[in-house]
Computed example of a mutant assay.
Amino acid sequence: MLCRVLCIISFVGFVYCRYFIVGPAKIRILDFDPCKEYSNLPMQFIIKSRMFNESTQLLDAFWVLPVDLDENVTMSLKCSRIDKRKTQVNSFILNDVEACSTLQKYVGDLWTYIQSKIGMEPGVCPVKMGNYSTENMILDLTKLNVQMILEGRFRTRIFLKHLSKPLYCTDFTIELTPKKE
């Protein structure tokens, strides 16, 4: 019986392993647009990308943070996996009370790296209001706290609220693939 259970678990693991990346991953941001139903939100985040080589994308970003990213700012993230045949709506959902601590918890060293590259004090919450920018930044997913990530194309919405009022909303599409070393 134990042998049968182990065989079934191995088979299921083999079937679903193609959906996960373990180790270095390549991320490409395909588009990054403000949510259509919200206009003139106080927080602005502009990102432009270009390929440096076949597996590395460079990012230029500008972030206007009109309030401190503190316990009054909540974050919601909904991610849908786009398959050739269908879209798996809400493949990953994150609703958390404090945006800054959520970024530290889930993004970890990558968030600290991003903070240092855009002119914030790394590893510090709350993030102080202000204007932040960077050029030619590489998103190194090996710094991500999560050791295994989903592979594929994802349409994601990130939504931030400050004291229950909309602060920021954007829709973006990313593609995650194993990185060839």
Rank of each mutant, 00 (worst) to 15 (best):
V67Q: 06
L144S: 03
A61T: 03
A99R: 01
V97H: 13
I138E: 15
I47Q: 02
V89A: 12
M120Y: 09
E151L: 14
L69G: 05
T87R: 00
V127K: 01
V89M: 05
T142K: 12
I93C: 06
K143P: 03
L139K: 02
T56D: 10
C125Q: 09
W111H: 12
C100D: 11
L139C: 05
E135K: 05
Y113P: 03
S80P: 11
W63E: 03
L110W: 06
Q115L: 08
V97N: 08
C79L: 10
L77C: 09
V124S: 10
F62V: 12
S133G: 09
V97D: 07
E151R: 12
E135Y: 06
V107D: 09
T74E: 06
V64F: 11
L94N: 07
G119I: 12
Y106C: 05
T102W: 11
D83H: 05
R50E: 09
A61Y: 01
W111Y: 14
E98F: 11
M120E: 10
P122Q: 10
A61Q: 00
K48G: 04
N131E: 12
D60N: 02
Q88T: 07
E121Y: 02
L94V: 15
Q57R: 01
Q104Y: 02
C100Y: 07
L58V: 03
K128T: 13
L69S: 10
L58T: 02
E98N: 14
L59R: 00
C79A: 12
L150D: 09
N136P: 04
V146M: 13
T134E: 00
S91L: 06
K117V: 08
T102F: 06
S55E: 13
V67F: 05
N53E: 00
F52K: 08
R81Q: 14
V97L: 15
V124K: 15
S76P: 01
L59D: 03
G108I: 08
S116L: 09
L110F: 07
S49V: 01
L139V: 15
V97F: 11
W63G: 09
N95Y: 13
V124A: 15
E98L: 02
E98Y: 14
L59K: 02
V64M: 12
T112L: 07
K84Y: 08
R81K: 11
T134L: 06
S101F: 12
G152Y: 11
P126L: 01
S91K: 01
M148N: 02
T74D: 13
W111R: 00
T102D: 10
G108Q: 15
Q147K: 05
E71H: 11
P126T: 07
K48E: 14
L110I: 05
M75H: 01
F52S: 04
S133V: 12
Y106F: 13
F62Y: 09
N53T: 04
E54P: 09
Q104L: 14
C125A: 05
S76D: 14
D96C: 15
Q115W: 05
Y132H: 04
K86A: 08
N90Q: 07
N145C: 05
I93S: 08
P126C: 06
